[in-house]
C-alpha cells in the first residue's frame, strides 16, 4: 500500500516520462507526432489491400475485424517489448536518482495506452465506413480497456524487472510474443477453432479483451460476462504478482543494472 502512495506522489514524473517518450519517438522526422496517427492509417490501408485483393478471406468486413484485434494486441505486445528494456535503458537514472522504479514500466504502458487511444481516432471512422453502427454496447469499451491495461501492467512489471537479472528474457520474449499472437483470436475468429480446443484458447488471458472488443465493435452483440470475469480475475492476479515480484527484486536494482 505504501508503494501505491509513493507511485501516486510521483505521478508528475510518470507523466513527464510518458510525454518525453512520445515526443522522442518521432523526433527529427518530418511528420513528427503525426506518425502516431499515420502509422495505424497506413497499417489499415496495407491490410485492407492485402485482404481485399490478395487473400480474399471469406468474412464480411474482415479488415475491420482484424484491425480491432490488432490494435489491442499492439498495445500489449509493444508494452512488453519496451518494458523488457526500459530499466536497463534508464540505467543512469536508476543509479543516480531515487524514485519508485515501478514508474518505468508504468510509463511504457502509459505511452502505449495513449498510442492506442490515438489509433481509435482512425479505427472508429473506419468502423463507421465499413457499415458497422455505434451501439449501446460500446459503453463496455472502457471496462475492456481497463482489464487489458491492468493485465499489461502486471506482465510489464514482471518482464521489466526480470530482464535485469536475466537478460536473455528480452530475446526470448520476442519469440514468445510471436507464438502468443497466433494463439490469440486476432486474425481469425474463435469460432474457427474446433470446440474441444476452443476452451484452451479462452484460457489465454489476452483472448478476453480482444474477443470482447470484437463482440462490441464487430459482432455488435453484448459482452460475454463469464469471459470478462475470468479476464478481470486473471488481470488482478498477474498485477499483484508483478507488483510483488517487482517490490522484491527492486532492492538490488541499482547495483545490478
Amino acid at each position: 500500500m505504501k508503494r501505491f502512495v509513493e507511485v501516486w506522489n510521483y505521478r508528475s514524473m510518470l507523466w513527464s516520462l510518458i510525454l518525453s517518450e512520445l515526443r522522442t519517438r518521432y523526433k527529427g522526422s518530418v511528420l513528427g507526432f503525426f506518425w502516431t496517427l499515420v502509422n495505424p492509417i497506413l497499417t489499415l490501408i496495407v491490410y485492407s489491400l492485402v485482404y481485399s485483393f490478395v487473400l480474399r478471406i471469406n468474412m464480411k468486413n474482415y479488415s475491420a475485424f482484424l484491425f480491432i484485434g490488432l490494435l489491442a494486441w499492439n498495445l500489449f505486445a509493444t508494452s512488453l517489448q519496451s518494458s523488457s528494456r526500459v530499466i536497463l535503458g534508464q540505467a543512469a537514472m536508476v543509479k543516480k536518482i531515487y524514485f519508485p522504479r515501478e514508474i518505468l514500466p508504468l510509463s511504457v504502458v502509459g505511452g502505449a495506452v495513449i498510442n492506442y487511444l490515438i489509433s481509435q481516432v482512425v479505427l472508429i471512422p473506419f468502423l463507421l465506413l465499413s457499415g458497422l453502427h455505434p451501439n449501446v454496447d460500446w459503453t463496455y469499451w472502457p471496462l475492456i480497456l481497463l482489464i487489458e491495461v491492468v493485465m499489461t501492467v502486471g506482465f510489464s512489471l514482471l518482464v521489466s524487472i526480470l530482464n535485469v537479472y536475466f537478460r536473455d528474457l528480452e530475446h526470448m520474449l520476442n519469440i514468445f510474443l510471436m507464438l502468443w499472437f497466433y494463439v490469440t483470436p486476432i486474425f481469425y475468429a474463435i469460432t474457427l477453432i474446433p470446440s474441444p480446443y476452443s476452451f484452451l484458447f479462452r484460457l489465454n488471458p489476452l483472448t478476453t479483451p480482444i474477443m470482447s472488443l470484437q463482440d462490441i465493435f464487430y459482432y455488435e452483440h453484448g459482452v460475454r460476462w463469464k469471459l470478462l470475469l475470468y479476464g478481470s480475475a486473471f488481470a488482478l492476479c498477474i498485477f499483484s504478482l508483478g507488483w510483488r515480484v517487482f517490490g522484491l527484486l527492486n532492492r538490488r536494482l541499482a547495483e545490478e543494472v
Binding site: 506522489n9 510521483y10 508528475s12 514524473m13 507523466w15 513527464s16 516520462l17 518525453s20 537514472m93 536518482i97 524514485f99
Partner: peptide, 9 residues
C-alpha cells in the same frame, strides 16, 4: 520540467 518532476515536483 522533466528533471524537476524526477525529483518529485
Amino acid at each position: 520540467f522533466l528533471n524537476a518532476s524526477l525529483l518529485g515536483l
